[in-house]
Simulated assay, not measured.
Amino acid sequence: MASRLFEEQEHAALYQKYRLPSPSQIHNLVLDYLQRKKGKPFSLAVDIGCGSGQSTRGLASYFERVIGIDVSRAQIEEARKVDGPENVSYRQGLAEELEFEDGSVDLMFKTLAPYMSERCHVVRNKYEEIFDAITFPDKERVDNIHFKRQASVSWVKGFFESLSYYQTFRKKDPERAKASIERMEQSFLQTVGVTPSDAVLEVKRTAFCLLASKPE
């Protein structure tokens, strides 16, 4: 069932500004798997829960068409504001109600993050529950994909402000939410010992990739 976490335009705009596309390591794993299971040409990719289109646009150079689908109208509007490849389009819709003919889609792509606290265990368990729930016999998983990037403290602050649980906190208690994000910023600055203008951090993340191929 879809979670409606990005209904407000302001929140969707923050998501567009501070969220990153899927890393190249993930794309390489997915494309290698697709090549082994199907081979070229790669005609159609569908990005489920595409948000504001960061990862959707990242698939454009590998497929003839890429369609991003998200339940949030605000997210789709933000995605359409970005000048992108002509072979990318966006639709508002539900993952449970896709209107594609059987066998017409080469890749169903989905990124997953612990937006809601009661679901964080899914990520902590390295997607084991999701992997076990996949009924296709041909499936693989890749663990502990590490990547890093340089980011300013102000970007890290904006990233946290774009998180749905921060936005929920902000709605319930704006003053405490603002104070918490400011304390976090000051803690980062004190740790690295620099002023805000030149404060740069090395941000490290770990991902897990689940791959499955529908039987013909």
Rank of each mutant, 00 (worst) to 15 (best):
K157C: 07
F159G: 07
F159P: 05
F147G: 06
E96S: 13
R80S: 13
E97D: 13
Y127L: 15
A74N: 07
R91I: 01
V153H: 01
L112H: 11
L112E: 12
F131V: 00
E129K: 11
L98N: 11
D132W: 05
A133I: 00
K110A: 15
V142P: 02
E96V: 00
S164A: 15
E97K: 13
V153A: 08
E99G: 04
V122D: 10
I134E: 07
V82G: 00
E97S: 13
H146W: 02
S104Q: 12
S72I: 04
E99T: 11
G93D: 07
V156A: 05
K110T: 14
N87I: 01
D83C: 05
D106Y: 01
E78T: 04
S89E: 15
S89H: 01
E77S: 11
V82R: 11
R141P: 07
Y90W: 10
V156E: 09
T135S: 14
A151L: 02
F109T: 11
V122P: 05
R73L: 12
H121T: 05
F109C: 13
A151G: 05
G103D: 04
V105S: 12
Q75V: 03
S72C: 11
I130T: 08
I145C: 10
S117L: 09
E97T: 02
K110G: 11
